[in-house]
Design a binder for these strands. Structure first.
Lengths: 161, 161
DNA sequence: CCGTTGTTTTGATTCAGTCAAAAGAAGCCG
DNA sequence: CGGCTTCTTTTGACTGAATCAAAACAACGG
């Protein structure tokens, strides 16, 4: 339930945190490390991972940290329909996501066709549009091969039950 | 917290339901009527509206009905980040949505720049892509005029708090 | 090394939605 | 029309994801 992402934690976590005006704490470093290892994972997965190295960390701390990181732009939070919030370190490049409707795995997709097109709706209804978010839905390689294992039953499926 | 939508309940609700193999019940008709009046509304708003005409309807019934309607393709469920599921009658035309980051209002947007581009990511990572969903984020007319009234605090805002 | 201020813990709480059993109604059958 | 099967709805408990708040704790500037 992960997918390719260049685990870009290039400068060490501490300096990234300082640059954002956040204190450097073990929890925050651990969350950054967890996200580098497990891109597109949710608070719970991060929590589990963090506790491998810091077993006393609270779930709330993980929520706090993820919230702080997202607010300061160090991580990006996505929230595909039918899934809890997911987090990724890859920020600032306006990429999109493709999500498996069967198992929920998420992969990155570079911005479709240039840039302008995906930012320009035909009519904006009076909105000042700031961002376009594209989510592709389909079957991942594994699920094409073996459609049997339905993992995430809570994914939105428009199909008959 | 609504927006333009051609309340297309053209054939009467009953026949729509029958055609989908669903029994015609008061709750279902009421939900359809509510959605025609309040596009892009969530289960709770639909519930409130339905109870104006059928005061004994249970919240669960509304969830059941919305689920049935979505599963049979009579309504479409969208789930913008930071908001509960929203429902709309406009289906089958693959339109997209623009959502106000300040107040959460949702409006329809016709498919961006033709069709192919938004369906073809540059690299699909082995996925068999079925659908592309585009969500535009920006400020609605009202919030551009009066940015004061922050309505939905639970909307994802990457900005500093 | 101290104090301020930001972070984390703990534990309760909310919100959106689902589950399940029992009661009730649609619609097909004769 | 009336019965019967099956689908719907009600009721009420329950889950998962996330937030709130107060008290304990720790970074880091001085």
């Amino acid at each position: 339930m992960t997918a390719t992402q260049p685990a870009t934690l290039a400068p060490d976590g501490a300096s990234v945190l300082r640059a954002a005006g956040l204190r450097v704490t073990e929890s925050r470093l651990a969350v950054l490390t967890a996200l580098a290892a497990l891109p597109h994972s949710g608070a719970d997965a991060v929590y589990a991972r963090v506790r491998e190295s810091l077993p006393n960390t609270s779930r709330q701390a993980v929520y706090n940290v993820l919230g702080d990181l997202a607010r300061t732009g160090i991580v990006r939070r996505i929230e595909p329909a039918g899934q809890p919030g997911l987090f990724e370190l890859r920020v600032g490049d306006n990429h999109h996501h493709v999500i498996c409707t069967n198992c929920g795995v998420v992969a990155d997709v570079d911005c479709a066709v240039g840039h302008a097109p995906c930012l320009t709706p035909s009519a904006d209804g009076g909105f000042a549009i700031v961002e376009a978010e594209v989510t592709y839905w389909g079957l991942c390689g594994d699920c094409q091969a073996d459609p049997g294992e339905q993992v995430s039953s809570n994914l939105i499926s428009t199909k008959e039950k």
